[in-house]
Design a protein around this nucleic acid. Sequence first.
DNA 1: TAGGCGATCCTG
DNA 2: AGGATCGCCTAC
Length: 195
Amino acid sequence: MSLLDRLSAPVDQAARSLLGCHLTVNAVTLRITEVEAYSGTGEDPASHAHRGRTPRNTIMFGAAGYAYVYFTYGMHYCMNVVTGVEGTASAVLLRAGSVVSGLEVARSRRPAARTDAELARGPARLCSALDINRDFYGTYLLDSHLTPPPSPVADISTGPRVGVTGALDVPWRFWITGDPTVSDYRRHAPKPRKA
DNA sequence: TAGGCGATCCTG
DNA sequence: AGGATCGCCTAC
């Protein structure tokens, strides 16, 4: 079964299949250690595609294997791998990875990182380490960027997604158990009201 | 067409 | 704990 076949499956299965994959962009290779699944229109309130097709999320409605990059908080980029079959709008957010090669380049792009485990720990840091920005939107990943795990992933843990206000009961965050590059879990906290 | 707010990170 | 800072979405 090819990686494309596995990414064309339902999004939670596709998310599991991405753990352990190698992602090479701009001279840095990462082993993917933490991901989150987002489903399509009308199914998942946390998904960017929940309210239907917009210019930003159009790529999510296409076939699996393309990069969905978005800009947030006025300063950060995050990257998803589009999953599912054409017509569905699912995608998997890449939340963390460990650097396999290109360590020096990654360090130079992430001067704030105190340890190598922090180089790509968190979705925006991951994009920063790989120098991914808006130009990467829509890139097809399965030709050369994204390759299957060189060795099997031992154990996968699951939990609620990070920074998501709704759907806290949906355990669609997946990570490689015990990996030091997995981001700290912070449950979304509602803003306290001023007295 | 203007205003609110976000799948975040860094510093104090 | 709070600021940075841009584009998407919603409602006027």
